[in-house]
């Protein structure tokens, strides 16, 4: 009986190790997004097929045209090499310059990325709204004033 448990434990461990290995390799070879560097190193490999790019929005590169509902910006990792992005759709609420984004779409022959989706990455850093406390104090003051009146 004891031996069966040991066999079972070893078998289970081997299966688990294989599963994790397969998962790791599988997800590794189908990465969620590519970086501008990878794409610019061999653009022909990425052209005209649906891919995602993960990068930062270059500062002062945004052109938002509300009439045409078109958003243009450049993505970069190092502010030296860029990929221009065109997105025909509404600008996401959390879109900021200098922010991480994941864009999905296709790189056209002119080297412009025609995006079908713009997702905004959120950083793991949280910070407190500066106006938050002031607003709260004002709220209490108005409440107090209202009751005193």
């Amino acid at each position: 009986m004891k031996r069966r448990y040991i066999q079972f434990a070893i078998g289970g461990a081997i299966i688990a190790a294989i599963l994790i290995g397969v998962l790791y390799q599988g997800v590794q070879s189908t990465v969620f997004f590519h970086t501008p560097h990878e794409i610019l190193a061999s653009p022909e490999q990425f052209r005209n097929r649906t891919i995602r790019i993960g990068a930062l929005v270059e500062r002062e590169s945004t052109a938002w045209d509300p009439a045409a509902v078109q958003l243009r910006f450049k993505v970069t990792e190092d502010s030296r090499t860029f990929i221009p992005v065109v997105f025909n759709g509404v600008k996401p609420d959390m879109y900021r310059e200098g922010q991480g984004v994941v864009v999905e779409g296709q790189l056209d022959d002119q080297g412009v990325f025609q995006a079908t989706q713009v997702l905004v990455k959120h950083s793991e850093e949280y910070s407190v709204e500066k106006s938050s406390y002031a607003d709260k104090e004002n709220m209490y003051k108005t409440l107090v004033n209202a009751t005193e009146r």
Binding site: M94, R96, H122, Y126, S127, V128, E129, K130, S132, Y133, K136
Partner: peptide, 11 residues
């Protein structure tokens, strides 16, 4: 509790 600077009340 104050709001998050970027996400506001959503956070």
């Amino acid at each position: 509790t104050p709001n998050d600077a970027l996400m506001g009340v959503t956070q």
